[in-house]
Nucleic acid binder design. Structure first.
Lengths: 244, 244
DNA sequence: CAGTGGTCTAGACCACCTA
DNA sequence: AGGTGGTCTAGACCACTGG
């Protein structure tokens, strides 16, 4: 019941309630204690309880209804599947564990961006970019083919050695860049020559491609990239909670 | 500057600020007025301003940084693409306009669920379900092949005529059911026989499949379904804002 | 250092649901 | 009617940022 000094109260409350839900102390399809009771129990104001519940509700664990109470929702099999979540700012190394992931650098160049990349990254034709192609391997098996563009201006000191490991870790810890968000478009595609060469795809193997634009907290676009994998190797899960 | 009576203050503030951003009154890559200034301007408390900004931030339009201010982020091309957003509780009819969408019912049966459907919808082997296969056409061209399971208990009066139009509209307006949320898994797949027959796919056309589980606000699972389309007809977009 | 957004409180009122 | 969650306020303090 002790709370770490720096921990925010609503975080502590949210963590505790989340834990009670997953351990079954608050069983699925039942009502939670009301906000006033929780406020008394945790010794915080009702607004703090509400803020904690708001977060849990956005994660899809509970549903609040005015005049009625707060339901615990059930687990779903889809949720527990071990797909890559579509929302992930950790690189692959962190998602799967760095030991299991290795990389092969196929291309590492500095070029001037074509019009599509200019548009995505909000650059002029004279702003150089890194163009990187990497094959990511999971347990030494071909997994994902990444094609990445980064503005040179924002990433001055990129070296091929870094690309053998985690690019995102480098951006975060070395350059102290923080991601603000990302847009992702997910689609299926026919295999291209690179897929056949590196992913062991045949000429007809369906490919799942994720195209993404990542921006920093200051609004600058830091990365435009595509990530391709053979259809049966990976899928994406999305949680969508009905607001309103 | 007048506010509709029933409108919540933070909603009105959020709408106004959103509008100022899109019209350019608050230009991209600049700072918003600080929360106290906005509170004075709108005649509300700072907390109400903060709540409005929190919502806009979750939509990826602004980014707030303590000690610094609130940035207006730029538009992105990916965001403006007219893909189907992955988060959508409106059916296809509403997304594309009901005039453009038509449906062909391929299968409409009441059956007992197999173990996979039992698990997804949290049913026993004795709870009957509707099993529905529909081909959705956009401007009379084959678009999406839907395979849907609904518990009979929750949808007592489904008729084939309803399936010619919008199922979701029926659930909402006739049965007064409200969706609480959905899990979606998006993957690529090889075409199957139905895809070839109804979607005009060849034996090697990549297919994009969305598998989803939808639950109601009371936590009951209302629909398990898959939606398949030919790879170049549709993709999904996801916005992912970095919290923390 | 001054200024920003973040957290938290106590208390008030409202809208909604069940009965 | 009574209880639930939702909104809103005024005011306090904190953590972080930049000059």
């Amino acid at each position: 019941m002790k709370r770490a000094v720096r921990q925010k109260k609503y975080q502590y409350v949210a963590d505790t309630i989340r834990q009670r839900i997953t351990t079954g102390a608050y069983p699925a399809r039942t009502l939670l204690p009301d906000q006033n009771a929780l406020a008394t129990e945790f010794g915080v104001s009702r607004i703090t309880i509400k803020k904690a519940l708001d977060g849990i509700a956005r994660e899809g664990l509970i549903y609040k209804k005015s005049g009625l109470g707060t339901y615990v929702l059930g687990e779903t099999t889809l949720r527990d599947r071990d797909d890559s979540p579509a929302n992930a700012f950790d690189g692959l190394s962190k998602q799967q564990g760095a030991e299991r992931v290795s990389s092969q650098v196929i291309k590492f160049e500095v070029t001037f961006p074509n019009t599509m990349v200019q548009e995505q990254l909000a650059l002029t034709a004279h702003d150089p970019v890194y163009e990187i192609e990497r094959l990511r391997l999971l347990d030494d098996a071909p997994f994902i083919l990444e094609h990445t563009f980064l503005p040179l201006r924002l990433v001055p000191d990129l070296a091929p050695e870094i690309l053998m490991g985690s690019l995102y870790t480098f951006l975060h810890t070395e350059l102290h860049l923080t991601f603000g968000g990302a847009y992702r478009s997910i689609h299926a595609d026919m295999p291209n020559q690179l897929d056949v060469t590196y992913l062991n795809a045949s000429a007809t193997t369906p490919i799942l491609e994720t195209e993404q634009l990542i921006w920093l907290t200051n609004g600058q676009n830091i990365e435009y990239s595509t990530a391709r994998n053979v259809y049966d190797k990976r899928s994406y899960t999305v949680l969508d909670v009905n607001e309103a």
